[in-house]
């Protein structure tokens, strides 16, 4: 059976095609200002990637902050359910999952069937989401994908006081003026961001291994900061963590079909 999961997020819209428990197609497009268009495009691209026709899909499940724009979805699930399903799809033993996207951070405790038992959300405030690192990157004049690797080259501990992305930008500019090395500033930014996410995870209780989903999972500087803060040897990350919730939605569609 073929199902599709579409995750319409604040920054990107992701689609996953699942065929008998295997990912056969995927696509990511920028959400931009027209969510419906982004949803259509990502589905078309994923279908092409899987080498199937749209009619071959038995069931489509939508999720993400823009899930109301997913007109073709047979079913819609919230982000917490989607990330929980996504985590157990990749790691059946996962019991704690965090998902940090561009505009929202979430953490959930899940049971063996991938049902969320408890969760915490950090929403509507850029200090706890991927946007924070991106904004700080602009102040540092460093592209987002170079921020993490840059942080890994530093071992200094510089505390950041500002708890707001706008105020933190001024603080970063202050550090630059004080001739602080770029890599040290980048590490301080990642440490600050990770401490907020870790605190959210602690609130639901760390339950065995931690799985990280969402676009921020691609950032090695963030993962290292999180690992250090949680005193864990490893954090489990699937390949292409930004597709985690889309995979969860596709898996949910397959279960219900």
């Amino acid at each position: 059976m073929i199902t599709a999961g579409i995750d319409c997020g604040a920054k990107n819209t992701k689609t996953i095609i699942l065929d008998k428990g295997k990912i056969t197609g995927k696509a990511l497009v920028a959400t931009g200002f027209d969510q419906e268009k982004a949803v259509r495009e990502s589905l078309e691209k994923a279908v092409a990637d899987a080498g199937i026709r749209t009619e071959d899909i038995e069931k489509i499940c939508g999720t993400g902050s823009g899930r109301n724009a997913i007109a073709m979805a047979d079913d819609k699930i919230n982000e917490i359910k989607a990330m929980a399903k996504g985590a157990v799809f990749f790691f059946p033993d996962a019991r704690t999952v965090a998902d940090v996207g561009a505009e929202e951070g979430r953490a959930a405790k899940i049971n063996a069937s991938g049902i969320p038992e408890d969760f915490a959300i950090n929403e509507k405030c850029a200090a706890g989401a991927g946007t924070f690192i991106e904004s700080m990157g602009r102040a540092l004049e460093t592209p987002l994908d170079e921020m993490g690797p840059l942080a890994l080259t530093s071992n200094k501990e510089i505390p950041m006081n500002a708890q707001c992305a706008i105020f933190a930008e001024s603080e970063v500019v202050g550090l630059i003026h004080a001739n602080t090395a770029k890599n040290d500033i980048s590490k301080a930014i990642h440490d600050a961001m990770a401490s907020r996410v870790v605190s959210m995870i602690r609130r639901i209780g760390i339950n065995r291994e931690v799985v990280m989903l969402g676009g921020v999972g691609n950032n090695p500087g963030f993962l290292e900061a999180m690992r250090r803060d949680l005193s864990l040897d490893t954090i489990w990350i699937p390949e292409a963590p930004e597709f985690g919730s889309a995979v969860g939605a596709a898996a949910a569609a397959a279960e219900d079909a």
Binding site: D118, F119, A120, Q163, S195, R196, S199, M200, R202, R203, I204, G205
Partner: peptide, 15 residues
């Protein structure tokens, strides 16, 4: 005072 949300977490489990 500007980290109350995070600092108080140990005493405020979500459950």
């Amino acid at each position: 005072k500007n980290k109350v949300k995070y600092e108080c977490n140990p005493c405020k489990p979500e459950a």
